[in-house]
Computed example of a mutant assay.
Amino acid sequence: MEADDLEWNRTLREQWEFHWDHQVRARLDGLTDDEYFWLPVPNGWSVRPRGSSTAPLQIGGGDFAIDYAFPTPVPAPFTSIAWRLGHVIVGVLAARNAAHFGVPAASYDTWEYAGSAATALDQFETQLDTWLTGVRTLSEAELRIPVGPKEPYPEASMADLVLHIHRELIHHLSEVCLLRDLYPHTRTATNGATR
């Protein structure tokens, strides 16, 4: 097949969709609240009931807030599955959905972070569906247009952004899967979940 004959939109989407369908989706089934909030090391960042964190900043618009600091400490704190999903839901997907596909604005400061694994997965799948629906509508000409000032690299094409978002999803959801793998191997009768 010649490069000119490729359906670039489908090819870009399949980078993520194959990974989601065959490697990640089933790995998220049965995520418990204990796994969601679990921190295997002290002083990690998570999503917590508002007012219960010791992080420099606790941001969000609901009963739960995400731990944060600006600038990010070096080394960055270890983060829970809850924190990683919050980052993916808001910073990777929802903000981009708002910037490029006309849905309501979303930001770390105003987001209502999930207080349970089930709610977080529902939020994730809603934002993912919105992203993929938006990407499906892009013509080849639209994939070549620079993303503009809504993004940190305004000269990058929309195709570059799609690839970047899909790499971010693969990266962070792989981390979530690794934490799920680690969780049962480090739990003991005296080691309760840390929130």
Rank of each mutant, 00 (worst) to 15 (best):
Arg13Asn: 08
Ala117Val: 08
Glu155Tyr: 08
Ala156Asp: 14
His171Ile: 00
His185Phe: 06
Ser174Trp: 04
Asp109Gly: 14
Pro154Met: 05
Trp8Glu: 12
Thr190Gly: 10
Leu178Ala: 08
Ile145Met: 09
Ala98Lys: 03
Val176Asn: 03
Ala106Tyr: 06
Gln127Cys: 12
Trp111His: 14
Ala65Leu: 09
Ala82Val: 07
Asp29Ala: 10
Leu12Ser: 11
Glu17Met: 10
Thr186Trp: 12
Ser80Tyr: 12
Gly115Pro: 02
Pro40Ile: 04
Asp67Phe: 02
Leu31Thr: 00
Asp63Ala: 13
Thr137Gly: 13
Leu57Val: 04
Val41Asn: 00
Asp5Val: 06
Ala117Glu: 00
Trp45Arg: 00
Glu142His: 09
Ser139Val: 06
Arg25Cys: 07
Leu39Thr: 05
Glu151Pro: 01
Gly115Ala: 05
Gln58Asn: 12
Ile89Glu: 08
Lys150Trp: 05
Val47His: 00
Arg167Tyr: 01
Gln123Arg: 01
Phe37Cys: 03
Ile170Trp: 08
Thr133Phe: 06
Gly102Gln: 07
Ala193Ser: 13
His87Ile: 13
Glu2Asp: 14
Thr79Ala: 12
Pro56Leu: 05
Ile145Val: 14
His22Ser: 04
Phe64Thr: 14
Pro71Met: 06
Leu178Gly: 06
Leu169Gln: 12
His22Met: 07
Val103Ile: 15
Pro42Val: 00
Ser139Thr: 15
Phe37Val: 08
Asp29Ser: 09
Glu14Gly: 11
Leu132Ile: 11
Ala76Pro: 09
Pro56Asn: 05
Ala3Ser: 07
His171Arg: 07
Ser46Arg: 01
Asp122Phe: 02
Trp131Phe: 14
Thr119Glu: 15
Pro40Lys: 00
Asp21Arg: 13
Thr32Ala: 02
Trp20Leu: 11
Met158Arg: 13
Arg180Cys: 01
Asn97Leu: 07
Asn9Asp: 01
His166Ser: 13
Glu168Met: 07
Trp131Glu: 03
Ala69Tyr: 01
Ala82Cys: 04
Thr119Ile: 15
Ala156His: 14
Leu93Cys: 00
Ser107Lys: 12
Pro42Lys: 00
Thr126Asp: 09
His164Met: 13
Pro71Leu: 08
